[in-house]
Design a protein around this nucleic acid. Sequence first.
DNA 1: GGGCCGGCATGTGTT
DNA 2: ATGCCGGCCC
Length: 788
Amino acid sequence: MANPGRAAAGRGVYLDGLNPEQREAVEATDGPVLVLAGAGTGKTRVLTTRIAHILSLGLAWPSQILAVTFTNKAAREMKERIHAMVGEEVEGMPWLGTFHSIGVRMLRRHAELVGLRSGFTILDTDDQIRLLKQLLQAENIDEKRWPARLLANVIDGWKNRGLGPQQVPAGEGASFANGRGQKLYADYQARLKALNAVDFGDLLLEGIRLLRENPDVLADYHRRFRYILVDEYQDTNVAQYLWLRLLAQGSRNVCCVGDDDQSIYGWRGAEVDNILRFETDFPGAKVVRLERNYRSTGHILGAAAHLIAHNEGRLGKTLFSEGERGERVTVTGAWDSQEEARAIGEEIEQLQRQGHALTQVAILVRASFQMREFEDRFVTLGLNYRVIGGPRFYERAEIRDALAYLRVIASPSDDLAFERIVNVPKRGLGDAALRQIHDHARAAQLPLVEAARELVTSEELKPKVRQTLRDLVGSFDRWREQMATMPHHELAEIVLDESGYTEMWQKDRSADATGRLENLKELVRSMEPFENLIGFLEHISLVMDVDGGAGGDAVNIMTLHSAKGLEFDTVFLPGWEEGVFPNQRALDEQGRAGLEEERRLAYVGLTRARRRAKVFFASNRRIHGLWQSAVPSRFLDELSEKDVEVTESRGGSGWGGGQSGRYGYGPSRFDEAQSFGSSYSTPGWQRAQARQESGRQGAFSGGGSVGGGFADNRPSRFAASEGARGRVIEGELIAKSTGTPARFALGTRVFHQKFGYGEVTSVEGNKLTVLFDKAGEKKVVDSFVEAA
DNA sequence: GGGCCGGCATGTGTT
DNA sequence: ATGCCGGCCC
């Protein structure tokens, strides 16, 4: 099977350093393979090395490999890593990307076969909902009772399961608006076709239809794709599974990598069953388990393993590590959520004093409302933090408005974009005018812009409205002409200016207006690298993400969901209370399945930690403005005792337990408060109080600009810095092991504020291991020591 | 057409 | 407690 000619060049160099299981997964190129890759077992490495291996053996050309991921970030990383291994060839991997980007690629090539034209637009959630709203209005459905948002979810759910309007089970079509769900779905699809548009779900669903209804096209892809690789297989939904299965029927060389224990997206349509059933779906499949963990210490793995063992219906893996056992997982109770935040803040300051980088610390919460407490606390302490996740750049209203202008310029038939900005800024083209344009468009079978163009030559509109609309149409014509002669980012600036859009925000005196103007500038800047406007718009319809700078040294705050795939030295896991985590709604709506997914989420959280995992719970928490007392999470009891240390909250008031049984399960070893003395006079507490008084200036002037935390009406450092940055990506979170020249050589004598004098015994990028004369061996970041 | 008030929900979130 | 949306009034 190997092609000796190509294999000769540097054979197997890339295989060095793989463990036997990883190597097995890489080398099993033929037939179906399922790689069950536990947390921190080198999953990405296996995937990328496998591709390098296939290329290096000459088994396939880069263009003959289909490699799918869920996120752009994952695709980007994979590209980079393959590139590092095999060089230029990766440029020729046109089929490495997200399910959706590959879906678009296929649909654009064969658009006419599914009733589209090749230049179809891709609607995002916002457009989708506005469209559905129109349909609901047309049907006279009470939007209060049946919100468009809900319908969008219902339709997405159907699409996730690979169901077209005709395939919706009868009972379910009735579930929305008294049985009108299915009809609305059908109407919606018809509207999309009329608009020459698709939504995200269609990118797969129409892809499936394309392959099913056109055997020649399918056969073509079968010939093309000699190898198929899928990342995060546990997150695939039914539609993705069907799509993959169709394509994999060709070569049958399909390799899926995933971890059933990390399936946390069931609520979004992911089917754990896909991974559980792999061997049935692909008979003769080889299953490789990666269980050797390179990330976490023994105690962390032990606690996580014991927890996840409470789930049924797993494929079963047991992670092991050859590293040290390390520190036990700590469990700390606090009186309320404020004390929890205070205790965590103190532990972080402690770590900071010991020389730990804040980028290596993360707080992982179940729900975003928990973040606020930490933000407040950290602002008070002057501790830098960054919130990862949250509203994304391209979802901001001002960005979407600006994009709508550009969309209308690029494709005059984009009615949804036109509707969005026809009266933004306010120019007197309200509902009445828009309705007239709509009516004419429907009668004349024209896009809205064209209908408007005709309408202004008639007497139908009021003179004032007619003039405004004529000007607007004229502006779009002018901008469209300029598109040919002018760099697109300059055009964007002109459009925002001449349309009055920039001015609208300049006049706006609300607190976030400056931030929005910043965002618009950032948008214009982000357009520069693209070849032209069309290219830019195509990119952002699929990549609703912007690379934010990594920012300075700051604590990472994010949800457990967005932490998947990341790792940190120290992980704080607050809010382990019944109702919060496991989340009550997950239990109510999904029962046992919901509980198991919550448990997997806990497992994901624990396994993000390399060296320290610190779990917290509070007895009282304010939820929706009401103080509620809570019971420690059942997950606490599911951590193995030998791996856990129950510590005292620094605030020291314990949690006043004794409320177990409220949720109908047994007593907990965390019910009793006896291990928590009331020690309000601990040094930490005194210091915290001192800080609260004197430390205020630190909150506002302290350190880098990463910290946000100002609520809406406070000075907009938040909006201007963090706000513009949006999502932060993984890249910088892991300490660099190469690249930066080491500041200290082995054997150098150094001095550390806390540990005193010592000698460098190992160097890993910016991380040093130092044998201190008094304090013994410690790992420190190089910026915290100086040459002695 | 614009601004104010009241009702309602308020898990996780990629493409 | 808080924010968002829709309805209602000027």
